[in-house]
């Protein structure tokens, strides 16, 4: 079974091919209906953002892709594989790395154990040396308990550990939330490097100034659906419109 899932995903990494296609995605937490028909797609090597106010359904969209919410309907195609009927632990094996909003650093593991924890999902992940080169702080603190790190270091760790797994599609939820500007800037540099490595990235972001220069396209969400798509080129001319949508 595992083998079949692996071979299905072994498409050549063609620039511009579709990595993620979400169609009419509805998601429910118990009785509450959170996503109301979300549609968007992401091409290989693209960095897109999901923007919107709190409660618009951005984090839930990422969770729904990972099958971490209750019930889902619609279609989520990753690398050509329909994943709606897949068990949660099968989905990351299609080559996805997920970084949750609360960062999810494990208190009972030290930094290096946290880093080594997620199983390899595909070949071609970064080596532990590459990761320590990209995040030197983590190397210095590799024997510390995971949750003893500062907020910024925990965020770096949460990102770093999914780079080791060979994931090619990263779903990053509010990675700059509550972090100092200098750390936000460092994270931006990391994202640029990851993009240069050909990673496909979906970024849920509150900090629009952080996201704007990095992203190829922006999707604006409201009330559990995508209401607007704005390409990087249109950004300057539509800035005011976007500010209205985001309420900033």
């Amino acid at each position: 079974m595992n083998q079949a899932a692996e071979t299905l995903t072994d498409y050549p990494d063609l620039e511009g091919a579709e990595m993620l296609r979400v169609r009419n995605l509805n998601a429910f937490y118990g009785e509450s209906h959170i996503l109301h028909g979300v549609d968007f797609d992401v091409k290989r090597g693209e960095l897109v953002t999901l923007l919107g106010r709190n409660g618009a359904g951005r984090s839930t969209t990422l969770k729904a892709i990972m099958n971490m919410v209750g019930r889902r309907t619609g279609s989520i195609v990753i690398n050509g594989n329909e994943t709606l009927g897949m068990k949660p632990h099968r989905i990351p094996r299609l080559g996805i790395g997920y970084c949750p909003e609360e960062r999810g650093i494990f208190a009972s593991l030290d930094v290096e154990e946290n880093l080594l924890l997620p199983p390899t999902v595909r070949s071609g992940g970064m080596s532990i040396d590459d990761i320590y080169a990209m995040f030197p702080h983590l190397y210095e603190r590799r024997r510390s308990q995971g949750t003893r790190l500062s907020g910024g270091e925990q965020q770096m760790l949460a990102m770093a550990r999914i780079l080791r797994t060979g994931a090619r599609l990263l779903l990053l939820d509010e990675i700059t939330e509550g972090l100092a500007p200098v750390i936000v800037q460092a994270l931006g540099e990391v994202l640029v490097k990851l993009k240069a490595r050909g990673m496909t990235i979906v970024l849920v972001e509150q900090n629009f100034r952080f996201a704007a220069p990095l992203a190829d396209r922006h999707f604006v969400m409201e009330h559990g659906r995508i209401i607007e798509e704005i390409g990087a080129a249109e950004l300057a001319s539509r800035r005011d419109h976007l500010n209205t949508l985001l309420g900033v």
């Binding site: 990972m66 949660p88 990351p92 997920y98 999810g104 494990f106 593991l109 199983p119 797994t165």
Partner: peptide, 14 residues
């Protein structure tokens, strides 16, 4: 140990 803390995230890691 990690599963004890947060099993949903462990599934999201595969």
């Amino acid at each position: 140990r990690a599963g004890t803390e947060n099993s949903a995230l462990m599934q999201a890691f595969g």
